[in-house]
Amino acid sequence: MKEEGNPEVSTPPSKSVSPKRRSSGPRLVTKPARAVRKPRKPANMAVSLTEEQFERMMAAMAPKPGSLTRCTLTYDGTKETDVVEAFLAAVNTYKRAERISDEDALTGLPLLLKGAAATWWQGMRDKIVTWDDFQERLRRTFAPKKPAYLICMEITSVKQKTDETTEAFVSKKRMLFSLLPRPELLETQQLDLIYGLLMPYIQEKVPRTSFTTYDKFLEDAVAAERLRDTWKNANPTSASTAASTAASASSALPEAAHVPVSSQRKPRQRCRYCKLPGHSLEECG
């Protein structure tokens, strides 16, 4: 007798499935690289210009010449050499800076000439055709050249004034030296002539042996003048005090002496600032 049991169930063979691998991080997705385009080279553009077109272009780029319309210099016909020379030097400098041609400068001259100079120009403008001719005729009319001996006399005869700065005084003398014919004097020789015409205060504060050039001399002289002015400003009552002291001293003299005036010995006046005799504080340079 057959044993009854659980019937056998046939199962189809199972397929072996391999386990999936899980990535431990985010998955990177790469894109294909794009091809780098090289910049295109610009095409060579050659511009051809004619000679006339090139000259026009250069003329347009060149600075335009100016005129005397904006010049503020004037000359009224003063017959002094330094005034005429200063005017011509300034006008020539302005003319070069503004690139003014000789023709345009002559056209604009009536804007600069006043008074007697304007009247002179009205009668001479038809005869003057060049700028150099204008300068020569202007000098001949308003600043005739002096003989050398007259220039030397003018240099040595005029001394420095008490209210005149050393720098201004030396500038006038140097202008006169420039008018002398060549060969010109050496700088040390010019300084020797000027030094004897200075105020006593400057001579005392700036010895002649302390400088050999104009620059060194003017530097020391300006420093001495600045020191003097500072002392005067700090002592405004010194002048009045010195005057009152001298008056009281003269009144205190005994009247019974009756000494003749010719035999009286006057006290020698001495400056209270520079301590030099022969002048008072008010007259000190």
Rank of each mutant, 00 (worst) to 15 (best):
A90H: 11
T156Y: 08
P144K: 08
V91A: 01
M153K: 09
R96L: 09
L109V: 09
E98T: 08
R140T: 13
Y94H: 11
A105C: 15
Q122N: 13
Y149R: 12
M124K: 15
R125Y: 09
Q160S: 05
L138E: 04
I155K: 01
L138Q: 02
V158L: 07
V158I: 11
P147M: 09
D133S: 10
A90I: 06
D104N: 13
K127Q: 12
K145W: 02
K127D: 13
Q160G: 06
I128R: 08
Q135A: 15
L150M: 08
Q122R: 13
D133H: 07
S101T: 15
L106D: 03
A118D: 01
L88H: 00
A118R: 04
T130C: 08
I128K: 08
L106H: 02
W131A: 07
D163S: 14
D126N: 04
W120P: 03
I155N: 03
P144G: 11
A90W: 06
C152W: 01
F142K: 05
T93H: 12
A117V: 04
I100S: 04
T119I: 09
S157F: 03
T93N: 15
F87R: 01
A89N: 14
W120H: 07
G108H: 01
K146V: 06
I100K: 07
T156M: 10
I151W: 02
P147T: 09
D104P: 01
L88W: 03
M153V: 06
L113P: 00
K146I: 04
Q135F: 05
L111E: 03
A90Y: 10
K159Q: 11
M124H: 13
E154W: 02
D133L: 06
R137F: 10
Q122D: 14
K146P: 00
T162C: 05
R99K: 15
W121N: 00
T119R: 10
Q135L: 11
R137G: 06
E103L: 13
D132I: 02
V91H: 01
R140C: 10
L111C: 05
K161G: 15
K146E: 13
Q135T: 14
R139L: 06
V158N: 09
L88P: 00
L109D: 02
F142V: 04
Q122M: 12
S157W: 03
L150W: 06
W121M: 07
W131V: 07
F134Q: 01
Q122C: 10
M124G: 05
C152A: 04
T156W: 04
W121K: 04
D126C: 05
R137H: 15
E103V: 14
L111R: 06
A105L: 12
G115T: 11
K127M: 10
R139F: 00
D126G: 05
Y94P: 06
R99I: 11
R99S: 15
N92V: 09
S101K: 10
G115D: 15
E136A: 14
T162I: 07
I128Q: 03
T93E: 14
A148W: 00
S157G: 06
V91M: 00
W121D: 01
L150Y: 00
K95W: 07
A148L: 00
F142R: 05
